[in-house]
């Protein structure tokens, strides 16, 4: 599978939390390359099933929503006021290009008061999101025709850029790159006769507080689950405790990670000679794994993360080699599931 192609297609589409329909349709098309069993639940989580229908179910999940904004009010002059839907740092907004998904996509820019017109000291304080206005260049009448309160707003799509050494930069790698990783898992497994029943889920509303994944895990009622999301890679200003090396697969160990799921992932990496790092997170992981774990009677859940620089900007940076390794680690766990699956999840005495 051409991972760069998948990422390019998936990140070109809007999917602000709660408005994932467009990206969802594309994800469904990609899923259908590997299985006919593709569906969505009422929240919008989208699933693909393959493998042995009578086997134990493993749920693999990455979220397809992106951080974004929403039209909140429209000024008399046609300027558009925006509010946060999820995850946008207001400090990166002034000077950025946005796309308003109205009756048709409308380009907009976020302006800022020129330094000449500021008062002394203004330069020291940050803009608040409620002070920012989007300028579409349209007349007030045109704005009314094309834009409505509630329309989603995202960073304007721009194709991912290839840097060097299979490193790429772009928007919404959080977490569409991991959707691509799950497609790669499907690709890696397509010629195997599996013991496990595999359900891949592209979840919704993760950026709003892991809201879709709980519903997804309840819906599938799996025997075990693995979430894949991005984590921080080393970057200027970040502390070692907060990041995982750029070229290593992060495998989380901690309070809400099932010890045996951690071991399965670790062993899969070791067996395939894949560089990995144990990422210790004792409490909330801030990923879908957190809400999957507590559904129904409890679900043994593991977490794999892809290191990424500059999270929640439109220049997120990842390594496609590390991404492939994430997929290999997960595929290895799925392949290893056999008749003894229940025992392999039992905690040691």
């Amino acid at each position: 599978m051409d991972i760069f192609q998948a990422i390019t297609e998936l990140t070109a589409l809007p999917g602000v939390s709660g408005s994932e329909e467009t990206v969802c349709a594309a994800v469904q098309t990609w899923f259908r390359r590997y299985t006919d069993q593709v569906w969505s639940d009422p929240m919008g989580n989208t699933y693909a099933r393959f493998g042995n229908p009578d086997g134990p179910t493993i749920l693999l999940m990455a979220h397809m929503d992106e951080i974004g904004l929403m039209v909140y009010d429209i000024e008399e002059g046609g300027l558009v006021r925006i509010c946060n839907v999820a995850g946008v740092d207001p400090r990166v907004l002034p000077g950025s290009e946005l796309m308003i998904y109205g009756t048709e996509p409308v380009k907009a820019v976020v302006g800022a008061l020129p330094p000449h017109l500021q008062k002394a000291g203004d330069v020291m304080s940050n803009y608040k999101i409620e002070e920012l206005l989007c300028d579409t260049g349209l007349s007030p009448e045109e704005v009314k025709e094309r834009i409505r309160i509630g329309d989603p707003v995202a960073f304007a799509p721009r194709p991912p850029q290839k840097l060097v050494n299979n490193v790429i930069a772009g928007k919404t790698f959080d977490d569409r790159a991991c959707i691509a990783a799950l497609l790669e898992v499907m690709d890696l497994l397509k010629d195997y006769k599996l013991y496990a029943n595999v359900v891949v889920c592209a979840s919704v509303q993760e950026e709003r507080g892991m809201l879709g994944s709980g519903v997804g895990a309840y819906h599938i009622d799996p025997d075990m689950a693995i979430a894949i999301d991005v984590c921080h890679a080393p970057q200027p200003g970040a502390k070692p405790v907060d990041y995982v090396d750029f070229d290593k697969v992060a495998i989380t160990r901690g309070g809400n990670i099932h010890p045996k799921m951690y071991e399965k992932l670790r062993d899969s990496a070791k067996e395939q000679n894949i560089a990995f790092e144990t990422d210790v997170t004792i409490s909330r992981t801030g990923t879908d794994a957190w809400s999957i774990q507590v559904q129904r009677g409890g679900i043994p859940t593991g977490l794999v993360s892809l290191p990424l620089r500059y999270m929640h900007t439109s220049v997120e940076v990842i390594s496609m080699d590390t991404l492939k390794n994430c997929a290999k680690v997960i595929a290895g766990v799925v392949r290893a599931i056999g008749a003894d699956w229940e025992e392999t999840l039992c905690l040691d005495d």
Binding site: P42, M43, N45, M70, C83, R148, I149, G150, V215, H219
Partner: peptide, 24 residues
Amino acid sequence: CQRDVMRMGGTDTSVVQRSRDGVL
């Protein structure tokens, strides 16, 4: 009718939406 985007404050809509395997 008018459109309602409320930045602050939650409602019962949320918990119903996320009940069981999701509700419209």
